[in-house]
Structure formats: structure tokens, C-alpha cells
Simulated scan of single mutants.
Amino acid sequence: MKTEIGLRDYLSTRRSIPAFQMCEPGPEKQEIEDMLKLASRVPDHGKLAPWRFIVYRGEERARISAELATMALAAKPDLSQEMIAVENTRLTRAPVVVAVVSTAAPHFKIPEWEQIMSAGAVCLNLLMAANAHGYCSNWLTEWFAFDEKAYPLLGVKPGEKIAGFIHIGSPQVPPTERPRPELAEIVTWVGEEA
């Protein structure tokens, strides 16, 4: 079946492009909505949709990045000029950044851990959806994903967590391969010998 071969080929070569190696063009609003629909098609025990998206585009990325830089400098006044420059570009390295926000919460039937893993699956699906639309992508977290003081600035509500920031754009350079684990190091066989 051609679809399976195409998907197998894609998965065997899937790579991320570093966010700082992305450039315009980025996806238009309709493309982003298409990507988010695809990203939402993940295992979701109980149909809770325990995640949501925040899309950062345009000049707001620069404003938020500048405020993140101010927060980083307040926490570490001795930041180097190089790191201040990095902080000032946190959300501007790619044309579009999508926060995947985990809304996992206690539930009478669905373990919170399963809800959290569903948000992780959304992140991976969004990477692949961006690639399917012809863009490169990268899943990052970085310090502000874990600093709840940054959450109001980012649009994250109390009780929510950031599963990842998916950076989407066009590649400035071709992707390079990186070492992958050997199966013998990560697989345990139980039962009959293969």
C-alpha cells in the first residue's frame, strides 16, 4: 500500500530543524488550523481533549520575547550579552510558535498520567503535521515552559502546564542526521525468541 510505504519512509528520515535555523515563509492561518486539526487526532482515553493550543504569530512574538528577556535578567542579573540576545528571540526564531498546553486534571476514571501523555502525542503529531504541509518544525520547552511566573504572559491558565512549544517555519539549511539509539540498548524482548 503506497500510503504505508510513504509514511514508513517519512518516519525513517524524520528530523527536527533547530528553531534558530528557521526562516520565512511560515504557515498561513488556514494551514495552521489544518495542522492543529491533524495534531488533535491522538489517543485520548475518555475523549477529554486534555490539551489546548496557543498560537504565537507576528509582532506579539517579539513583545513576549522581550518580556521573557526582562524576566530572565531579573532572575539572573549577570546574564551575558549573548544570553540576553538569546532571551530576546525566544519566540521569534521561527515564523510561528504553537504552545501545546496540558490541561490534565484529576478524573474519576482517566489517570492524569494518560492525559499528560496525550498532550505529548499532540506535540509529536503537530511536528509531523507541519512537515506534511512542507514546513520544518522543532519541539522545545526551555525555562519559561516550567516557570509559572511566565504563564500569564504566555496565556497559560492556573493549573495548566506547557507540554512544549512547537516552532514552525522554513529551513535555512538541510536537516542533518544525529545518532540514534541502537535497538539492542533500548529493547527488552519477553517471550519467544525473535
Rank of each mutant, 00 (worst) to 15 (best):
N131L: 00
A129V: 00
H133G: 13
A94W: 05
M117E: 07
V97T: 11
L126D: 06
V100C: 05
C136A: 12
P95Y: 08
S118P: 00
A94Q: 11
Y135A: 12
V96F: 05
A129N: 05
V98P: 01
E87Q: 14
V101P: 02
R90Y: 07
S102P: 03
R93I: 04
N125G: 04
V101N: 01
T103M: 10
A104I: 00
W113E: 15
L91M: 14
V122I: 07
K109I: 11
G134H: 04
I110H: 12
L126K: 00
L127T: 03
Y135V: 14
C123N: 08
F108G: 14
A119Y: 10
N88G: 15
A119Q: 03
T103Q: 14
E114M: 11
P106G: 12
T89N: 14
V100A: 11
P111R: 04
I110K: 10
C123T: 13
A130Q: 00
A104P: 05
C136F: 02
Q115W: 09
A132K: 05
T103C: 07
C136Y: 01
H107V: 11
P111H: 10
H107K: 06
V86T: 10
V98S: 03
I84L: 15
V101A: 09
G134N: 11
A119E: 04
A119F: 05
A85C: 09
L126G: 10
L124C: 06
G120Q: 02
C136H: 04
L127C: 15
T89Y: 03
E87I: 06
A132T: 09
S102D: 11
W113L: 13
A85S: 15
F108N: 13
I84V: 15
L126F: 01
F108K: 15
A85T: 13
I84P: 00
V86D: 12
V97Q: 09
H107E: 08
G134K: 14
M117N: 14
P95H: 04
E87D: 13
A129M: 07
N131W: 00
T89K: 15
M128Q: 13
C136I: 12
M117R: 13
C136P: 06
P95M: 12
C123I: 08
Y135M: 01
A132M: 09
N125H: 12
A132Q: 12
A105G: 09
H107W: 07
E87G: 00
T103I: 02
P111I: 10
N88A: 11
C136K: 06
V101L: 08
A130P: 03
V122C: 09
A121W: 03
S102Q: 05
G134S: 11
P106M: 08
T92Q: 12
H107D: 15
F108Q: 14
L126W: 05
A121M: 08
L126T: 05
S102C: 11
E112A: 10
M128A: 02
